[in-house]
Computed example of a mutant assay.
Amino acid sequence: MIRHTVAFTLVHAPGSPEEQDFLTRGPELLRAIPGVTDFTVSRQVSPKSDFRFQFAMSFADEEAYAAYDAHPDHRGFVAERWQSEVARFEELDFVAYP
């Protein structure tokens, strides 16, 4: 199993309708892509990080993750929303340690 995570900060004002739209519509689209499981949206509460949110999802294996990455809905989301609405991000992918 692969746990794909991305912590990010949006260009939108906190609590704005644009922020809410991104955090609602993005997950709706991404959750529907085959192979995506356990999709969560989280809000950062620690003062140790300036990332405000996180999307996290799981994939059964590298093949499922690669299919997600190549899926037209994922590619479209990145091109149409992510690139213009995310100010900065950090992507981390995890597998279980032994």
Rank of each mutant, 00 (worst) to 15 (best):
F55N: 08
I33V: 15
R75N: 03
E63H: 03
F59S: 04
P72E: 06
P72H: 07
S42N: 10
A67E: 15
V41S: 10
D69M: 05
F53C: 04
L30E: 12
G26I: 06
Q44G: 01
T37C: 02
E62V: 09
F39M: 09
E80C: 06
E28F: 03
S42W: 11
R31D: 14
E28I: 01
D50E: 13
S42Y: 04
R75E: 12
T40Q: 12
H74W: 13
R31E: 15
D38R: 05
A79N: 11
A56G: 13
V78Q: 10
P34D: 11
F51E: 02
F51K: 01
Q54N: 11
F51G: 01
F77A: 12
Q44F: 01
R25P: 00
S58H: 11
I33P: 09
F59I: 04
P72L: 07
R52W: 07
D50S: 12
A67D: 07
S42G: 15
M57E: 05
R31W: 10
D69K: 11
A70S: 11
F39E: 00
A56Y: 04
P47F: 02
Q54R: 14
A66E: 10
K48Q: 07
V36P: 08
A64M: 00
T37V: 06
E63Y: 04
E63D: 09
A64H: 05
V36W: 13
R52Y: 02
R52N: 02
F39R: 03
F59Q: 07
E62W: 11
A66W: 07
S42A: 14
P27A: 09
E80A: 13
A79S: 10
A66T: 08
P47W: 00
F39C: 00
D73V: 09
F39L: 13
V45T: 05
V78S: 09
P27K: 09
Q44D: 03
V41I: 14
L30Q: 13
P34I: 03
P72C: 05
R31M: 13
S46M: 01
R31H: 09
D73P: 06
P34Y: 06
A32T: 09
E62C: 01
E63K: 06
S42R: 14
A56V: 07
D61R: 06
A66F: 03
A66R: 12
G26D: 12
E63Q: 12
E80M: 08
F53Q: 04
P47D: 08
G35H: 08
P34L: 02
R43E: 09
T37W: 00
G76W: 15
F55I: 14
D38L: 00
G35V: 08
E63M: 02
Y65G: 10
E62I: 03
M57P: 00
H71L: 06
A60L: 12
V36H: 08
A64P: 01
L29P: 02
L29Q: 08
M57V: 05
V78A: 13
